[in-house]
Design a protein around this nucleic acid. Structure first.
Length: 435
RNA sequence: GUGGAUAUAGUUCAAUCGGUAGAGCACCAGAUUGUGGUUCUGGGUGUUGCGGGUUCAAGUCCCGUUAUCCACCCCA
């Protein structure tokens, strides 16, 4: 008995079986189609980068989560922990070959050495879409539209996109005289929904003082309609700011498109990453608030500045595919029973083997995914195989069919038989059942 | 990374005081049908997550380890 190696996978890393992977791919295709419909183009970047490239402007927090090591040439390298930072590097490196504004999407895996939880893994897939090269409310709004269209295309019911603005908040903190603590304040504020007002107030008091803490709480828990909250924020931050004006403009575009109900102005949304400079957003499912944001992002106007002297304002958002899939599963929206093969040609007769492949080729030419059962076994076996793989149709060709150049089709779900039909009719029967 | 809970067959679960692992479903083999859902016969399919320890004896008690779930942290 040889010593077998345990076929184990790392904590937070996963295998994907066909039934999962098929729907993952479908979701990705749906998203890609939505992105393309807005004129976005795909790109790709290496998963490994120089550590300094990834951490150039990262926060202290991301340092801890990053997978980092020395390569064989003693280079200090790291695996990307998101797609936005490599994208900034990409822009700086390829600016000469690009046209601005540049709109790209990128669906790929990223890695963070965090502790795992449901819907949270160490290897996960992000679907990013960004617009670089314009700092306009139109661009901000377009990203919001894509977020909405993408999630709608996936058939996700009842979403709300919570939006907020870093610029206004910074103006407010400056007005309050606590700007130097902004990073910590942002982090505390972000927890409002989770730990409640009391705890937030407590932590803010520790950091600043009683008066200022209650002012901050007043800011982040501002209530009412979009416009009411907006004017409240302006009031608290000492008058209208560039950011608040822009939010007003974006609000008008929402009203024009009749999608204003989807958006909630929520000043407690701040986002952990510190590269954001303008609008920020997170998306929650009404029925599953606990699962967290499934799509979030914002405007980052200085991100590329560490790589290039050219200014490249950007705005974008990212869908967490794994978290989204966990949500879809829980909501019962995901369709797990999918097959890619439409018909199985049963292996009945030794002398007809070549004929089976010939028929299969014809069916494929007609656009029908076809496979031939690859050994001669009992029909029961072959049917069981088809059932396991969720193949909806079987084609049976025995001596009789072969002689008259016909086939018999069986619908495996209804067990309905279509005996001795010609191939053209068989194609109609099978193809007509397309989803 | 820290703290807590959990880990038994493909799956859902059971196993008393520590006494040598069992049930439903699923599955496999065979019989019978040119068409699998019925029927008949036969089969338990297991490194009790992994590694140690205590004991005459460990799924059960102890220690370690790995993974999962939950909280913190952070985020998608």
């Amino acid at each position: 008995m040889p010593n077998l190696v345990q076929p184990k996978v790392l904590k937070g890393f996963r295998d994907f079986l066909p039934e999962t992977e098929i729907s993952r791919k479908e979701i990705q295709t749906t998203l890609e189609n939505t992105f393309k419909s807005f004129g976005m183009v795909p790109i790709d970047t290496p998963i490994l980068e120089y550590t300094e490239v990834l951490l150039g402007k990262g926060s202290g927090e991301t340092d801890k989560q990053i997978y980092r090591f020395q390569d064989h040439g003693k280079r200090d390298v790291a695996m990307r922990f998101d797609l936005t930072v490599p994208f900034a590097r990409f822009m700086a490196a390829n600016l000469n070959n690009l046209y601005l504004p540049f709109k790209r999407y990128h669906i790929s895996k990223v890695w963070r050495g965090e502790n795992t939880q449901r819907g949270r893994y160490r290897e996960f897939t992000q679907c990013d879409f960004d617009i670089v090269g314009v700092d306009s409310p139109e661009a901000d709004f377009e990203i919001l539209s894509i977020m909405y269209e993408s999630l709608t295309a996936l058939g996700i019911p009842d979403i709300h996109i919570h939006i907020s603005h870093r610029g206004i908040f910074n103006a407010f903190l400056e007005y309050l005289g606590v700007k130097e603590n902004s990073a910590e304040i942002l982090r505390i504020v972000d927890k409002l929904a989770k730990i409640g007002e009391e705890k937030v107030l407590e932590q803010l008091e520790e950091l600043t003082n009683k008066e200022k803490a209650s002012k901050i709480l007043e800011y982040i828990s501002a209530d009412g309609s979009f416009d009411e909250i907006l004017s409240k924020l302006e009031e608290l931050s000492g008058g209208p700011t560039e950011g608040s004006k822009r939010l007003g403009t974006i609000r008008k575009m929402m009203l024009n498109c009749g999608i204003e109900d989807l958006f909630i102005l929520n000043p407690s949304i701040t986002r952990g990453l510190d590269y954001y400079t303008g609008i920020v957003y997170e998306t929650f499912l009404d029925e599953l608030p606990a699962i967290g944001s499934v799509c979030s992002g914002g405007r980052y106007n200085n991100l590329a500045s560490i790589y290039s002297k050219t200014e490249m304002p950007g705005v974008g958002s990212s869908i967490g595919l794994d978290r989204l899939m966990a949500a879809l599963e829980e909501l019962g929206v995901s369709s797990s029973k999918k097959s890619l093969t439409k018909v199985l040609i049963m292996n009945m007769d030794d002398s007809l083997k070549g004929h089976y492949f010939n028929i299969a080729a014809k069916l494929r030419k007609a656009g029908i995914n076809t496979e031939v059962f690859l050994e001669q076994k009992k029909m029961k076996n072959q049917f069981t195989f088809a059932e396991r793989k969720n193949i909806p149709f079987a084609i049976i060709i025995g001596e009789d069919e072969y002689k008259e150049n016909k086939v018999s089709v069986k619908n495996l779900e209804t067990r309905e038989n279509f005996n001795m039909t010609n191939i053209e009719d068989a194609i109609k029967i099978i193809g007509g059942n397309k989803e």
